[in-house]
Design a binder for these strands. Structure first.
Length: 279
DNA sequence: ACGCCCACCTGGAGGC
DNA sequence: TGCCTCCAGGTGGGCG
C-alpha cells in the first residue's frame, strides 16, 4: 500500500488519537512481522505517553516520553485502524490485526497487515538515524532543500534506468511504484532513460513533478488500490487521478496524443508510461 | 560499489 | 464451485 502520501495520511490520522495519550496496554496478537517484535516489547511500551508522531521516508516514528521511538513501517499491505472501545458497538478483531494499542482514553489503534511485510522497532530516539534501515536514506522530496540540482547530483554516474533509480530510497525517499510512474509521465521523461542523463532542466522538471504528485495525493488522502485506508476508515481518492499507473491499454491522457499507455517490467516491477510523450 | 533477481506473505482477480 | 496462475503500494540479502 504505502508510499509517502499514504504514510503521511496515516500519520495525520493517528496524531489526534495518540499524541498526548498514554499507551495503557499493548497486545501482540502475532509477533512474526518482517522483523520479529522484540521480547518484552509490550512491557517496554505500556505506560508510555506518545509525545509526537513524525515521518521519515515511509516510516512512522512514534516518539515516546521515555526517549524511545517506536518505528513503524507498513510494508505493502499494512494499515492502522481506530476503534472507540467505549462505544457500545462490538469491535471484533479482524484477520491480520497483529498489534493492538489501547490508549488511556479508550481509543484503540490496531496495526493490521495481511502480508506481514511491515515492521515495528523500538530504538532510542537519538539513534534512529543510525539504525541500519535509516542509514543511507536519501533526501525527503517535500523538503524545500530538495531541488533539481540535488536530484541531478544523486543520479550522476548511475547507469540504471531512471524509474529504478526513483524507487531506490538511497536516491530520494518516499517515492514508490505509483508515484515514480506518475512523476515520470508528468515530466515527460521515459522510464527507460539512463538515470545519469537526468540533469539540468530535466531534473528540475522531474523534481517539480514529484513534489506536485505527492502533495496532490496527500490532499486526496492517498491512493486506495487494495489496502490503504486512513486510520478513520476513509478511503484515499488519488487513484482517480492516475494518468498512467495501472492503465495499460488506455489512451494516453495527453490531448491529441493518440497513443496507448504501455506496461513494461523494470527491476521486477510494472512500469506504466506513454512511449510517445515520454522521452 | 553497483545493479539485478528474488524471497518474504496473503489475497484478489481472471481463466478454464 | 474449484483450482491454477499471475499480480500487488516495499525492502533487503545474495549474487555476478
Amino acid at each position: 500500500m504505502p508510499e509517502l502520501p499514504e504514510v503521511e495520511t496515516v500519520r495525520r490520522g493517528l496524531v489526534p488519537r495518540m499524541v498526548g495519550h498514554r499507551i495503557a496496554r499493548l497486545t501482540q496478537r502475532r509477533k512474526d512481522l518482517r522483523v520479529k517484535l522484540p521480547t518484552k516489547f509490550a512491557a517496554r511500551v505500556e505506560g508510555r505517553t506518545v509525545t509526537a508522531i513524525d515521518r521519515r521516508a515511509k516510516y512512522l516514528l512514534m516518539r515516546l516520553d521515555d526517549g524511545q521511538t517506536l518505528i513503524v513501517h507498513l510494508g505493502m499491505s499494512g494499515r492502522m485502524t481506530l476503534h472507540d472501545a467505549r462505544s457500545a458497538a462490538e469491535h471484533p478483531f479482524e484477520r491480520h490485526d497483529h498489534v493492538v494499542f489501547d490508549m488511556d482514553d479508550g481509543w484503540q489503534v490496531r496495526f493490521n497487515d495481511a502480508r506481514r511485510f511491515g515492521l515495528m522497532l523500538l530504538v532510542p530516539t537519538e539513534s534512529v538515524e543510525k539504525h541500519k534501515a535509516f542509514r543511507g536514506l536519501g533526501p525527503e522530496p517535500l523538503d524545500m532543500a530538495f531541488n533539481g540540482a540535488v536530484l541531478a547530483a544523486r543520479l550522476k554516474g548511475r547507469r540504471t534506468p531512471i524509474k529504478a533509480a526513483l524507487l531506490d530510497q538511497k536516491t530520494l525517499v518516499g517515492v514508490g511504484n505509483i508515484y515514480a510512474c506518475e512523476a515520470l509521465y508528468m515530466s515527460g521523461i521515459s522510464p527507460r532513460r539512463s538515470a545519469h542523463t537526468v540533469q539540468g532542466d530535466r531534473a528540475e522538471r522531474l523534481v517539480a513533478a514529484i513534489k506536485q504528485v505527492l502533495l496532490r495525493s496527500i490532499d486526496d488522502g492517498g491512493s486506495t488500490l487494495r489496502d490503504h485506508v486512513q486510520p478513520g476508515g476513509e478511503l484515499g481518492y488519488f487513484q482517480a487521478r492516475f494518468k498512467v499507473y495501472d492503465r495499460a491499454g488506455a489512451p494516453c491522457p495527453t490531448r491529441d496524443c493518440g497513443h496507448l499507455v504501455k506496461r513494461l517490467v523494470q527491476a521486477g516491477r510494472s512500469t506504466f508510461y506513454c512511449a510517445h510523450c515520454q522521452r
